[in-house]
Design a protein around this nucleic acid. Structure first.
Length: 504
RNA sequence: GCCUUCAUAGCUCAGCUGGUUAGAGCGGUUGACUGUUAAUCAAUAGGUCCCUGGUUCGAGUCCAGGUGAGGGCGCCA
């Protein structure tokens, strides 16, 4: 029996088991918001119905106490979930004391230290359910399309793209690295199965302190035989579309808890814009408009808006401070105003940070050097003009990995594709068509100064039945962050690992 | 690695240009109140102002160094 089944038991007596999410009490009645992992249900405990002794127990319950309550289900539109329980019986598993996370705001460091408890909070509950739903939708899509799921090794001996950003471990006396991609193994498996996908952890020892990096994250890497860059982009597009729409369909309540505007997500039903690197650079530098909009002008307008907004916030703070200073008002009114002032001050801090960052983004976009990779801020500027994920393909071959196939019509370019999510979420997918020629690959491996020996097995794939093939890597946490519209990827995974964070 | 912002009660923060006993809200405790949605009201406890050194008659406040954290860049998904 759980809170989502209550509608079938209106008027009947049921028992719910869960935790005390919140409690309010008066002389003869105690209200408990019971949390059971599925949802919430307010339980009303009246002194007369339950008896003096149990009522005293109910009154003494601390936040997150574990209990079982028995009572009659009553429909009540005002309640979360639409039902409440009129309690006649109470069993206490544990009466918890001093639960550290209150219903007030907390700082990020405190919450991260208490991640094991933070997961019980309503927003985190919603995020974890969306994450679960995304995983399920991903498997659904690939399984329906005939892909075979494979598990790539986590220990690797070859430091494929340089050792600096890999975690080194000891493997029976030899150095081994935690994988930063299963792609090369995926290619081998695709030659055996036709179409495969990996779904597993990935490790990067990058000392990044940004809202879109983790040291340990989950990546989904499909690989398809007999597939070129354009078929690859078709797959990426229908894949993302299917996953997002399925999640929007299945997580209505969760997305509502998160305050997510789902109209910003359902746009994925429309085709994704596809831009060549050259076109993207033109747009980024403000030399080419999109739907009559100039990228630099739009960011400049955002910056102006931030300045305006700060002035509005400051004026409102001054106004509320005057109200408090005037005196002669109730304590509740003072609290209300002080809370407003606090949150306005927080907003100003964010706005000030925006005002420090955005001029840098503008300068970076304006002065962008053709031939470079896009930086995080360039992605933000570029995607600001679109309401759907965009696909940027045909990159200068120098900045792409050694295994990327060169464009046969224009060898300056490699057939890579990056998918950039809207709303500033940046790169969620990176992929491309793979080089099929052993000769070209060897040349590239040497060019990148990589040890040729460890790639002999990889070159075998080009020696025995080499075929055009493509694939991509999807960052699960970045997808979760975008779908949930979160500030930071560290909220997208139960126990995030990022620079400086190993506990809990 | 670089740039930038910050560190005050269990939590979230205020503390103006240095000046007596360091403040608020939440949370805790005690009490009031039949229905609250972060309830409300009253009372009450709770502090090595991150660390080290310096300037000064006097430092939470200024300076230097350190430690920790937030954000941005690089790197990437």
């Amino acid at each position: 029996m759980h809170t989502k089944q209550l509608e079938k038991y209106v008027g009947q007596e049921v028992t719910l088991k869960g935790w005390v999410a919140n409690k309010r009490e008066s002389k003869t009645v105690v209200f408990i918001n019971l949390r059971d992992g599925r949802g919430l249900c307010q339980c009303i405990i009246g002194a007369e119905e339950i008896g003096e002794e149990l009522f005293a127990t109910a009154k003494s319950l601390g936040q997150e106490s574990s209990i079982a309550v028995t009572g009659k289900v009553v429909a009540d539109e005002r309640q979360i979930g639409g039902y409440e329980l009129h309690v006649t019986g109470l069993h206490v598993y544990q009466n918890a004391r001093d639960y550290p996370i209150s219903n007030k705001e907390h700082g990020i460091e405190f919450l991260a230290d208490n991640r094991h408890l933070w997961l019980r909070s309503r927003r985190q509950w919603a995020i974890m359910r969306v994450r679960n739903s995304i995983s399920y939708a991903i498997h659904n899509f690939f399984q329906n399309e005939g892909f075979v799921q494979m598990d790539a090794p986590i220990f690797t001996g070859n430091a494929a793209e340089g050792t600096t950003d890999l975690f080194e471990t000891d493997y029976y006396g030899k150095p081994a690295y935690l994988t930063q991609s299963g792609q090369l193994y995926g290619e081998a498996m695709a030659m055996a199965m036709g179409k495969i996908y990996t779904f597993g952890p990935t490790f990067r020892a990058e000392k990044s302190k940004t809202r879109r990096h983790l040291s340990e994250f989950w990546m989904i890497e499909p690989e398809m035989a007999f597939c070129d860059i354009f078929e690859n982009m078709d797959t990426i597009e229908s894949f993302l579309r299917a996953v997002v729409l399925e999640v929007v369909q299945n997580c209505k309540e969760e997305l509502e808890v998160l305050g997510r505007d789902v109209n910003k997500l359902t746009t994925v039903a429309k085709p994704f814009p596809r831009l060549s690197y050259d076109e993207a650079v033109e747009i980024l530098k403000g030399k080419k408009e999109v739907n009559g909009q100039n990228s630099l002008a739009v960011i400049q307008a955002d910056l102006d808006k931030a300045i305006e907004r700060q002035k509005t916030c400051e004026a409102e703070i001054a106004e509320r401070e005057t109200i408090i200073a005037a005196g002669g008002i109730k304590k509740g009114v003072i609290n209300f105003n002080q809370n407003k002032i606090d949150s306005l001050k927080n907003e100003i801090k964010q706005l000030e940070e925006d005002q420090r960052n955005m001029p840098q983004w503008l300068a970076s976009a304006r002065d962008f050097t053709y031939g470079n990779d896009f930086g995080g801020s360039d992605e933000t500027v570029l995607t600001r003009l679109f309401d759907n994920p965009i696909m940027v393909y045909d990159w200068p071959h120098e900045i792409k990995a050694f295994y990327m196939k060169r464009n046969p019509d224009d060898p300056r370019f490699a057939r890579g594709v990056d998918v950039l999510a809207p709303e500033g979420y940046g790169e969620i997918v990176g992929g491309g068509e793979r080089e099929t020629s052993e000769e070209w690959l060897v040349e590239k491996i040497n060019e990148h100064q990589l040890p040729i020996d460890v790639f002999q097995w990889y070159l075998d794939l080009r020696r025995y039945g080499s075929v055009p093939h493509s694939g991509f890597g999807l960052g699960l946490e970045r997808l979760v962050a975008w779908i949930c519209k979160l500030d930071h990827v560290r909220e997208t995974i139960p126990f995030p690992r990022y620079y400086g964070r190993l506990e809990p």
